[in-house]
C-alpha cells in the first residue's frame, strides 16, 4: 500500500507567504490567550495541596465543602474527578498551617464525617518548591533551545538552526496558548511533554533539512526553491506516516492513561499536529528567506560526502 505517490513536486514555497501568515496569526492568538487568560498552573508550580478522595457511593460535594468549611479552611475548591465517587480537593498554601498539618487536618475531618472516605492521593507543595520548579522549567527550555541550535548550526548551518528554532518555539507557544485558552491544568508532566515535543519536532525539520542538503548536492541546476520543494515532497510520505504512528501511541495514552497522563497526551497531540505544519511550512520558508543556498552548504557537503564514501567503502 502506498498513500503518497506524487509525481510532480508540490510548490510548497510558493505558498510560503500564506502558510507563515497562518502561523503568525495562530502564534499571536496564542500569545494573546497566554497573557490575557494566563496558564492554569497546577500545585507543582503554585504550591498548595491537592487531595483525591474516593467514596464507596456517590460523593456529596456540598457536604464535603461544609465539612472543610467547619475546619475553618477557606478558598477550597471541591469537584468531581473522573467519576461521581471520586472527588478532587484543592487548597492554596496557608500561612498559619504547615502543608503537613493541612492535609492531615482535612483527611481527619473527612474520615470522621464519612468513614468510607479513602484518601487515595495527596500532593502538597510548599510555595518555595513551586517557584524553583518554575525557574528550572524555564532554564530547561532555554537549555534545550540553545543545545539544539548549536547542534544544527554545527551540523548544517546557522540559517537552518535559526529557522528550526523559530518553528519549534512557535509550536511551544501554541501548545501553551491552547492550555491558556481551555484553562487545562499546566503541571510538571505537561512541561515534560512540551520539552519532549521540542526535541521531537526538531526531528522533523532535521529530516527535511537533510534532504535539502542532499538535493543541493544532486540537483546542481535547480534553484533553492525547487530544491526545497522537492525535499518536502520527497519526505512528505515519511512525515505523515511517522506522525500517524507517534500519534497512535499518544492516543493510546489519552484513552488508557487516566487523569495523570491526560494533559500530558493532550500537549503531545497539539505538539505533533503543529509540529508537522511548522517544521515543513514555517521552518523551510524562513530558511529560504534567510538565504540558504548551495554556496553556504557546499563546502560542508563535499567534505561530508567523502567521509561517507570512506565509511561505506569497507
Amino acid at each position: 500500500m502506498e498513500l503518497f505517490r506524487i509525481k510532480k513536486d508540490i510548490p510548497f514555497m510558493s505558498y510560503g507567504r500564506l502558510t507563515t501568515s497562518i502561523s503568525l496569526v495562530t502564534f499571536i492568538l496564542a500569545i494573546f490567550f497566554l497573557f490575557g487568560r494566563g496558564l492554569n498552573y497546577g500545585v507543582d508550580f503554585t504550591g498548595g495541596t491537592v487531595m483525591e478522595v474516593h467514596y464507596p457511593t456517590t460523593a456529596n460535594i456540598e457536604n464535603i465543602r461544609k465539612v472543610i468549611d467547619a475546619e475553618g479552611i477557606k478558598d477550597v475548591t471541591v469537584q468531581n474527578f473522573g467519576s461521581s465517587q471520586d472527588v478532587l480537593i484543592r487548597l492554596p498554601v496557608k500561612k498559619e498551617l504547615s502543608i503537613a498539618q493541612l492535609s492531615e487536618k482535612i483527611s481527619h475531618a473527612l474520615k470522621s464525617a464519612d468513614a468510607g472516605a479513602e484518601v487515595r492521593r495527596v500532593e502538597s507543595v510548599g510555595s518555595q518548591v513551586g517557584e524553583e520548579l518554575y525557574e528550572n522549567g524555564g532554564l530547561a527550555l532555554l537549555l534545550v533551545c540553545a543545545g539544539i541550535m548549536a547542534y544544527l548550526a554545527l551540523r548544517f548551518e546557522w540559517r537552518f538552526a535559526v529557522a528550526a528554532i523559530i518553528a519549534n518555539m512557535h509550536d511551544v507557544i501554541i501548545i501553551l496558548g491552547f492550555f491558556a485558552f481551555f484553562q487545562w491544568e499546566f503541571n510538571l508532566t505537561v512541561l515534560a511533554a512540551i520539552l519532549a515535543v521540542l526535541g521531537y519536532s526538531v526531528n522533523e525539520s532535521v529530516v527535511v533539512f537533510d534532504r535539502v542538503r542532499e538535493n543541493f548536492k544532486k540537483m546542481r541546476k535547480a534553484s533553492a526553491v525547487q530544491v526545497i520543494d522537492n525535499a518536502i515532497t520527497r519526505t512528505m510520505s515519511r512525515t505523515i506516516i511517522t506522525h500517524m504512528m507517534t500519534q497512535t501511541m499518544v492516543c493510546s495514552m489519552l484513552f488508557f492513561g487516566g487523569e495523570t497522563l491526560h494533559n500530558f497526551s493532550l500537549a503531545l497531540t497539539i505538539g505533533i499536529l503543529f509540529g508537522i505544519y511548522s517544521s515543513v511550512l514555517v521552518a523551510c520558508p524562513i530558511a529560504m528567506w534567510l538565504g540558504v543556498s548551495r554556496a553556504n552548504l557546499i563546502g560542508d557537503t563535499e567534505k561530508k560526502s567523502k567521509e561517507d564514501e570512506a565509511a561505506i567503502a569497507p
Binding site: N136, L139, L143, A196, V202, N203, V206
Partner: peptide
Amino acid sequence: DTILDSNVTTLIAGLALFMFGTGPI
C-alpha cells in the same frame, strides 16, 4: 545520517529534562 541527527536533537531535550527535572520528571 538523518536518524542520527534527529536522535541527537531528541537526546538534547532529554538531557535538559534530566538536569533540571526533579522527581517524576
